[in-house]
Simulated assay, not measured.
Amino acid sequence: MIENQISGNIVACAVEVHRNLGGPGLLENVYEEALAWELQQRGFVVERQKTVPVKYKGNLLASPLRLDLLVENQIIVEVKAAAQYNPIFEAQALTYLRMLDLKLALVINFGEKFVKDGIHRVVNGL
């Protein structure tokens, strides 16, 4: 499956999670767990809190990168539950994409009244 097909399914799952949990007001980890479960029920391979080693000038740093979700080893999903969206979320996602040489990330802010307004695509060379 290509990135755009997978991302369409991720968005559908995010809407389902938001609807079933009653909208905003919960912690990020609740939305993250529910989204991972929803994706797995649809047959997707999902890794939660995946650690990724970070190298600096050939040296492995003690602090690894931690992704909220990695779907099908292709798409990074950063889950937020912020009352106010911050563009830094997209900058972080783009950095993650570059470090892992991936093409697409979704930043999903479940803190929005309508989750569709909180979904931001971040691309790296798509």
Rank of each mutant, 00 (worst) to 15 (best):
I108P: 02
S7G: 02
Q84V: 15
A36K: 11
E28N: 07
I119C: 03
N20A: 05
E72C: 04
G125R: 14
L100Q: 12
M99P: 00
A14D: 06
V54W: 06
A83N: 10
Y31F: 01
K57G: 00
L27K: 13
A91F: 09
V17N: 09
V15W: 01
T51Q: 13
N73T: 04
K116G: 00
Q49H: 10
E78P: 11
L26E: 08
V79H: 11
V71H: 10
A81L: 08
G8V: 01
A83W: 09
E72L: 08
P24K: 15
R19Q: 08
A62Y: 07
A82H: 09
V71I: 15
R98A: 14
V46W: 04
L102F: 12
Q49R: 14
F44Q: 09
Q74S: 15
E90L: 13
L97C: 12
G23N: 06
I119D: 02
V30G: 02
L39W: 07
R42W: 05
K103L: 05
G118D: 07
H120Q: 10
G58F: 05
A82S: 14
Q49E: 15
L27V: 11
R121Q: 11
K103H: 12
L94A: 08
L61P: 06
Q92M: 10
V52A: 00
G43N: 03
G23T: 04
N59C: 06
I6S: 05
A81D: 04
E28H: 08
A93W: 04
L61W: 08
L35Q: 11
T51F: 02
D117L: 02
I76W: 10
K57R: 15
E47L: 13
N109L: 14
S7L: 01
Y85L: 04
C13F: 01
N109E: 12
I88E: 15
A14M: 03
H18P: 02
E3Y: 07
A14W: 03
P24T: 03
I2E: 14
A83T: 14
A93C: 09
K50Y: 06
N9V: 09
Q5S: 13
V122H: 09
Y96R: 03
E32K: 15
V123A: 11
I88S: 15
P87E: 14
L97H: 07
L106I: 04
E28G: 02
V123R: 12
A34N: 07
V115Y: 02
E78L: 11
N9T: 06
A12F: 02
N59Q: 12
D101E: 15
D68Y: 09
